[in-house]
Design a protein around this nucleic acid. Structure first.
Length: 569
DNA sequence: AAGTAGCTCAACCGCAATCAA
DNA sequence: GTTGATTGCGGTTGAGCTACT
């Protein structure tokens, strides 16, 4: 509004603001003007007055009639927007309150970029306002390397998610009493994708999935880290510190740990870039596959890299991105020169701050929310639960809080991955890192301006594929990986191992389907299926993939190569 | 003090869903 | 069932402002 001060106050169209009718120039506000030139640009107070007067008389709606009846040279669309965002009564002006911010965070964690829905929960606020706020906040937080969601939200969501997952697990196990640990079925003939069906019945709000896929969220995170990797070096450290501090304070100090994390990420990111690390792949320099990397240049690294182990695909995967969108071109650094850290950062954010809130559902489904947070949160929950049930773990491939730690004795599955020539684990660094990075870091481990510890995350156990244990060695940064840290990180699931997945509950055998089949929990499904190109999705759909709330199944043999990462020779 | 980069926010744009004829 | 108009939504843009160098 204040920006309209320089404008004409008479509401009459000035020449430089007159736009051709839409029939001649796109379809915005296209039809209602009948050849009358319509004004664009900022509204004047006179125009506002006209519009207000009109709405008083005729009420809202029928916006195209505004121009006809009021003489306002604005299209209906513009009128509606102006009214909704600025003129209608009961609009709150000014900055968001802390309560509102909190609510937005919770709502976004739950809904994703459903600005209109979010606005419905914030009286007096408009979707545009919320969207702008969120995008601004997102950018700031991402640039500062902070998680999107505050940790307190994580705890709440953790508890709720745990409860929901317990319900889910019960139902799954009711379907199958198989001992999931017995089967070492790498040649998985079929994969059953198990959505978190139980949630459906208790979720009052089940929108059409916005298709905020795991990969899109990962992309979001990855691209978010582009801010870290690209912006950070540009941004002066002082500014970064200030921003981060500001954001920190906005969360009541609960972000210390995250803040701490971030500073590490920045540096590692830079360092990793300087090493041309092929993010998201961690790889052992002695076993890296140059051919593979070459093929994937310019392609969608996440999709190709993480999911196409042996058959790199050249297909670009166009992902639908959430609000904070970045085109593939934005991810230009995804090639061999990409840093491993973006994902890690995002993962950190996601894991530390899974979706929360009970705005519309007490048991938000990861798929429903469309947020990877939920997905990862599930994994985290599962993994934690499994770790507690250590006695259950009989298979050597099971990742338990100890065998994961740096020991040269890799678990079976890991070795087998290697033997079977999958240069990278199915989920690669992505997933593995997720679990190795979600351990909170105590704030006193390093100060903000200390040389950050690359190993704090890069050194966490990155087991996958041929490269077995691969550390991202960034020689330009300190490597102060601590034993404690490693122990912490090692408690997380080794997702690259099917056995581990099985053991963790990510994959479960299901005898109900007759064959050696594996239930892939929603989280895995999301990683496996949702991240693929639409073409792949269609193929998968042809293979009985049902991306609904119920079970879905993919016939293994019919799955595109990118799906067949568990297939063994 | 000047130049510049980054930020904010209002408005635009395109698409899809809905509605009515 | 089809078509065109209307409405709603989410992503994007760009002008003005602010902070920094």
């Amino acid at each position: 509004m204040s920006r309209m001060t320089s404008e004409s106050e008479n509401g009459i169209v000035s020449n430089n603001q007159i736009e051709l009718p839409l029939g001649e120039e796109g379809n915005y506000c296209g039809s209602a003007n009948g050849g009358v030139v319509l004004k664009k640009g900022p509204w004047t107070s006179a125009e506002d007055a006209i519009l207000i007067e009109y709405v008083k008389k005729h009420g809202e709606g029928n916006w195209n009639a505004v121009q006809k009846h009021s003489g306002l040279f604005r299209c209906g669309k513009s009128c509606r927007l102006r009214w909704a965002n600025h003129l209608r009564p009961n609009l709150k002006k000014g900055a968001f309150t802390q309560e509102e911010e909190q609510l937005i965070i919770e709502l976004h964690a739950k809904m994703g970029n459903k600005w209109a829905l979010m606005a419905a929960h914030l009286p007096g606020r408009t979707d545009n306002e919320i969207k702008n706020y969120w995008n601004t906040r997102i950018k700031r937080r991402q640039r500062a390397g902070l998680p999107l969601y505050p940790p307190e939200a994580s705890l709440q969501a953790l508890q709720e998610s745990q409860r929901c997952l317990n319900i889910d697990r019960i139902e799954i196990r009711n379907k199958s009493q198989h001992d999931t640990l017995q089967s070492n079925s790498y040649g998985i003939p079929n994969v059953i994708f198990d959505n978190l069906t139980p949630n459906q019945s208790i979720i009052p709000y089940v929108p059409e999935l916005p298709d905020i896929t795991a990969s899109s969220m990962l992309m979001k995170g990855l691209s978010s880290f582009q801010y870290g990797s690209i912006m950070s070096p540009i941004m002066h450290r002082q500014k970064r510190l200030r921003e981060a501090t500001t954001l920190l304070s906005s969360f009541g100090g609960g972000m210390k740990n995250e803040f701490h994390l971030f500073d590490q990420f920045q540096e590692v990111d830079i360092a990793a870039q300087s090493f041309g690390l092929p993010f998201p792949f961690d790889y052992d320099s002695t076993t890296k596959n140059p051919e593979f990397f070459g093929e994937n240049q310019g392609s969608h690294t996440l999709a190709n890299g993480n999911f196409s182990a042996s058959k790199p695909t050249s297909e670009a995967v166009k992902l639908e991105l959430p609000s904070l969108q970045y085109s593939e071109s934005d991810l230009g650094g995804w090639g061999p020169s990409c840093s491993p850290s973006p994902l890690i950062e995002s993962v950190d954010a996601f894991i530390q701050s899974p979706p929360t809130g009970t705005v519309e559902s007490e048991c938000p489904s990861p798929r429903n929310s469309g947020l990877l947070d939920a997905l990862l949160h599930e994994a985290k929950t599962l993994s934690s639960a499994k770790n507690q049930l250590s006695d259950k773990s009989s298979n050597s491939s099971t990742v338990t809080p100890g065998d994961n730690a740096d020991s040269p004795g890799l678990n079976i599955s890991e070795t087998e991955w290697e033997d079977y020539g999958h240069p990278f684990s199915p989920l690669g660094h992505t997933a593995t890192s997720l679990f190795s990075e979600c351990t909170p870091i105590s704030a006193n481990e390093s100060s903000l301006d200390e040389s950050p510890s690359c190993e704090t995350f890069t050194g966490s156990k990155c087991k996958f594929g041929r490269s077995a244990e691969c550390y991202v060695k960034s020689e330009s940064v300190d490597q102060t990986w601590t034993a404690d840290r490693e122990k912490e990180s090692s408690t997380w699931l080794d997702i690259t191992s099917p056995d581990a997945l099985l053991d963790s509950g990510w994959l479960e055998h299901d005898s109900a389907y007759g064959k050696d089949q594996v239930i892939v929990t929603d989280a895995v499904e999301t990683l496996l299926c949702d991240d693929l190109s639409s073409e792949s999705k269609q193929m998968a759909a042809g293979a009985s993939v049902n991306h609904g709330w119920g079970h879905s199944s993919c016939s293994w043999n019919n799955m595109p190569a990118v799906y067949q990462m568990y297939e063994l020779p």
